[in-house]
């Protein structure tokens, strides 16, 4: 069993992925054990205390103290936006492996700073949608040449209802960008972004001339879609020899009763897949490189998208002229 320290209980707006996602996922995973809880900001404290009580582990009011006290090689960082980068830096400088909530950092520059400080430790960014069984199957199919050379990807990543966040592009944009990266492994060279109310349309130009277009954001609630869940989550990869269509909203199993629907995806949910990957990194079974490289690239795409929205023209991800 690998001990985990939960650090930070915030995010963008009123998000708390630590409590909602990582705490239950670590609790359920057979390879990890929650060993301590730390606040990174006064706003964290009530949730951190509740989590410590729930998990039956010690609470620490600051991360540095927790790191020197708790014997945990892994830190799960889901700190509020204002302390996120500092918390990541503190954890990696202490030589700990990190599970980093998304968005990794607010900007690409901060992401690079954290990665530079993380020499010798593993960072897994919690872009958990890349672990969706549909995506992992899609990656294998694409690498095997099932549809030949991909030349276009179309994506809809649209959440219905839930708590709106001030920056839905930063909040959600990384997910589909990361899945496209997982599917194709083709870095983005240029970005043209167009605002559509709470949604954004990202037109991306990749290496080898591939293009992708992503509709991402949050709409008002929709009947039949649980609050804050994905109403649309699909990918269409057009290749030289065929088309791969993935729709993550289609469950493998649906149990329907008078009181509702229970939908299941096989073989594992995305968070279990994420923690399996974290375990492989921590135990040295695989390098953390791919997801970390993609995290940096994703941060660059979101930076470029923000510039494109402001300037109204395509923007290069290397900061140059598109």
């Amino acid at each position: 069993m690998i001990n985990v320290l939960l650090a930070g209980f915030g995010g963008l707006g009123d998000q708390d992925h630590q409590t909602a996602m990582y705490l239950p996922a670590f609790t359920a995973h057979p390879a990890f054990r929650i060993a301590g809880v730390a606040a990174t900001h006064p706003a964290d404290e009530p949730r951190a205390l509740a989590a410590a009580e729930s998990a039956g582990v010690p609470y620490h009011a600051d991360l540095a103290t927790a790191l020197s006290t708790v014997d945990a090689p892994v830190v799960s960082v889901a700190a509020p936006a204002q302390t996120r980068t500092d918390a990541l830096l503190t954890a990696v400088r202490a030589g700990r492996h990190v599970l980093a909530d998304k968005p990794f950092t607010p900007t690409r520059a901060e992401a690079e700073q954290v990665v530079a400080a993380a020499e010798g430790t593993g960072i897994v960014v919690a872009q958990h949608h890349r672990y969706h069984p549909m995506v992992t199957a899609g990656v294998a199919a694409l690498r095997g040449g099932t549809v030949g050379l991909p030349w276009n990807v179309q994506v809809d990543f649209v959440v219905a209802g839930g708590h709106p966040c001030q920056d839905e592009l930063l909040n959600f944009g990384g997910y589909p960008v990361d899945v496209v990266a997982a599917l194709t492994n083709l870095p983005v060279l240029r970005v043209h972004a167009t605002a559509a109310g709470p949604l954004t349309v990202l037109a991306l130009g990749h290496e080898h001339g591939m293009t992708s277009t992503i509709v991402v954001g949050r709409t008002a609630p929709r009947a039949g879609v649980p609050e804050g869940r994905l109403a649309h989550h699909r990918y269409r990869v057009s290749g030289s020899h065929g088309v791969l269509v993935l729709d993550a909203t289609k469950p493998a199993v649906t149990v329907s009763t008078a009181s509702g629907l229970d939908r299941q995806w096989l073989p594992v949910d995305t968070l279990t897949g994420l923690l399996d990957d974290l375990h492989a990194v921590v135990t040295g079974a695989k390098p953390a490189g791919p997801t970390l490289d993609d995290a940096l690239r994703t941060a660059a795409v979101l930076d470029a998208a923000r510039r494109s929205l402001t300037e109204g023209v395509p923007v290069a991800t290397d900061g140059g002229t598109a």
């Binding site: 179309q154 809809d156 559509a196 057009s238 088309v243």
Partner: peptide, 30 residues
């Protein structure tokens, strides 16, 4: 702040592809 994404293709494989998809995301519904 409204956007339309139009795709028109005669380039897809297999040549029998016939794929029509329309999605309208509105302020109150889809």
């Amino acid at each position: 702040d409204r956007v339309a994404v139009c795709e028109m293709s005669r380039a897809h494989r297999p040549s029998t592809t016939g794929h029509r998809d329309v999605l309208v995301i509105g302020t109150e519904g889809t």
